[in-house]
Nucleic acid binder design. Structure first.
Lengths: 167, 167
DNA sequence: TTTTATTTTCAAAAACTATTGAAAGTTTAA
DNA sequence: TTAAACTTTCAATAGTTTTTGAAAATAAAA
């Protein structure tokens, strides 16, 4: 496999993976392209490389910046914007985890508290309460584990401790 | 909020969550319905409760059985099949993690080895190799962490050790 | 065997999501 | 100012995924 084939396969694979996880295929493909690019890319270059429209490129690049995975660079004497991705894959993974927690786990915690207000003594009511309470426990556990991971990432000692565990 | 409203909100929330994570809305809703149901349900009852067609119910119930989240029960003297969900939410979470690893992480490992065959001395080639190698490390780390989690789940000592960590 | 109850399949339709491209908006330079 | 370079928006279109419902298949009972 040569570099060109490898790049295409990587972009394709990352795109499929993204769409399995509720992220648009194009957004993941732009991310893949920037991950393997040694230099910053303009909108025009992204359009050209992935054969997609200007509007599509613009919307998805902005979404990637919202996710904190892609950044702008301004070049002196150039009016255009250039884009580059965070290249450290561990940081990328942590950033995705953080964002999904913010966007999904946090709102879920609110909903669960609402659902815990339901009181009903029927059998259906009891099963409902049990399921909701159990779900709440698991969410709490997930939340704490994510905290631990993020803190480990930002903390040398923890990081090394976790590496020991997961070696 | 009464039980009926709570049930609807739970089914709705679980459905939205599922579709954010690449699982069809209806599949997640059927799962939610079975999670809070104290008794096994027939196809007919699921159709009625969620207002969906027979074909849709059948396909999604089978998908849930493939995921190992829902099971069949046969009642003596009844020709119909009845369904129920695993209720322990920690087991549910572990089962989802296991399945997604099998369906996505494992194939990804294969693709990465292919991509590591690419050799190219250009700057673009070097960045490609670095990104792929780094991604490979992160995937390996994730894989080991999942193993640890699954083993912890099946192992009293580890389980308690992890609880200490994530308390 | 035939009938009846139930499950499964799958082509067509509906619903949903992503993409285009041209027009409007913005910013900088002349 | 005005023009040029570039970015953003959004209605229309294309593409994808999900759902329906009726027909085919299967299994149990008569």
């Amino acid at each position: 496999m040569n570099l060109q084939e490898g790049k295409e396969k990587f972009i394709q694979t990352w795109g499929t993976l993204g769409s399995n996880w509720g992220i648009s295929r194009t957004m993941a493909q732009i991310h893949a392209l920037l991950l393997i690019s040694p230099k910053v890319l303009s909108t025009e270059e992204i359009m050209e490389e992935l054969q997609i429209s200007r509007g599509n490129t613009n919307m998805n690049v902005r979404a990637l910046m919202d996710w904190g995975l892609v950044f702008k660079e301004f070049k002196t004497g150039e009016r255009r914007e250039f884009f580059f991705a965070e290249k450290d894959m561990w940081k990328v993974a942590m950033q995705i985890v953080k964002e999904r927690r913010k966007r999904e786990l946090d709102p879920l915690v609110g909903t669960i508290s609402d659902l815990q207000q339901v009181k009903d003594s029927s059998e259906a009511g009891k099963q409902f309460e049990t399921t909701v309470a159990d779900l709440n426990k698991v969410i709490g556990k997930a939340d704490k584990t994510i905290d631990l991971l993020i803190r480990a990432d930002e903390n040398w000692f923890m990081n090394n401790f976790l590496k020991l565990l997961t070696k």
